[in-house]
Design a protein around this nucleic acid. Sequence first.
RNA 1: UCCCCAGUAGCUCAGUUGGCAGAGCAAGUGGCUGUUAACCACUGGGUCCGCGGUUCGAGUCCGUGCUGGGGAGCCA
Length: 460
Amino acid sequence: MKRTKISILIKSDKPRDNVLIKGWIRTRRDSKGFSFIEVNDGSCLKNIQVVADNSLCNYEDIKKLATGSAVAIIGSLVASMGAGQKWEMRAETIEILSLAPDTYPLQKKRHSDEFLRTIAHLRPRTNKYGAVFRIRSELSYAIHKFFRDRGFKYIHSPILTGSDCEGAGELFKVTTLDLMNPPTKDGAVDYSLDFFGKEANLTVSGQLSAEMFALALGDVYTFGPTFRAENSNTRRHVAEFWMVEPEMAFCDLTGNMDLAEEMIKYLVAYLMEECLDDLELFAKFVDKGLMSTLGNVASSDYTRLSYEEAVEILSKSGEKFEFDIDFGKDLQSEHERYLTEHHFKNPVMVYDFPKNIKPFYMRLNDDNKTVAAMDVLVPKIGEIIGGSQREERLDVLETSINEMGLSKENYWWYLDSRRFGTVPHSGFGLGFERLLMLATGTTNIRDVIPFPRTPNSIEF
RNA sequence: UCCCCAGUAGCUCAGUUGGCAGAGCAAGUGGCUGUUAACCACUGGGUCCGCGGUUCGAGUCCGUGCUGGGGAGCCA
């Protein structure tokens, strides 16, 4: 007999005989002659209520079923006499697949997120984390659907890289050398004897690869893990995270911002349509205002303002900031928060940043002091997207590489793209986990990724 | 890496001016004719984060280390 998933059963429009379910016990309530057993199989947030009569041959064992135990139940789906649910299952046989001992760490009541992080291998069995990871799965799918519907091609950019790409943050080194006794040359480690014949790292971004493919396939995107060895200890950073990076040929900064806005709106609307049950859990227990926030994000237009205008708003705000606002300095967290949470109360797109605070590949504007960069800032989380129109002019790009003290030789292949059929192109990086935080109201990034990697923490 | 806060039962926490270690939930046992994070009764459960110090006496005060959380920087 094939098992039926609980997500299917609870949506049934008629009673059904001879149904098999398999899942885990969430709670058991005993009465005089029978027990109510809540079974969850992870297919959806809801449990199915199973009624186990004391006439069942193994009823004495059934009464030992504790939270976390696994069962296979055959029975019939019938209308529930109770008020809390439409359907319930009347058990004919209950096979106990495994009995959870009383040391099972999860209880029926709520646990703190901090405690659940210490048992990250078990937390997907809770309502909240089950919901997080179902939403994460749906959001991944929606990203692919969004791009595919618009003719974008999915590029698998490499995880192992030989260049330090954009110099964005500290890199994780990848080596097969004997760390106790590495080969040296002139007092330094001799990486010519390493696996790749040169230094290698985990990628910090798929952007440079994506650019090469955008200049061949037109519109492309990457979606994969990226790594930063930055020692940052905040609720918005992890060492391993997933990034979505579209790259579009024949596209300027405005087209780039258009895509970013359209994409966020699409994804949030998609979740509100497909994951309503799970989202409502967050609206109930995590962030009371979640649904109105999401409604706003999905439907209202995002204000676009230049860095210069942002600086002006902040200067005139009368707000006392810890850090000075001055043209040429990057916006601090407190400034971003002021813009999104107080001034506009909505996502905000800031563009045309001073060139000295941005990487070499961003396109120089005609004013010679700003670049065609853009950030999407959202309330509570801050920067969720960073992107730019890329510098497509070979001479300007070479000057920029020189000015930033980088070596042209390392980027020979990147520069080739500007030698051969170069065109204006643009792209951005979206922090997948940060979008999940926005979608669920979760305030700590460690709670939206299955096994978070942070400084001093890689237990699971 | 810097600043701030916290660490007491399986979990969430209380513990007064330094004076016998507490509650709720969970767990175990029993009860209850339909429950909804069921309910009622009883029972068991402690390296008060580690180390050192002050004191007649430290969960409480001091020093230090570790762990967790929040903020900052870096960014997505």
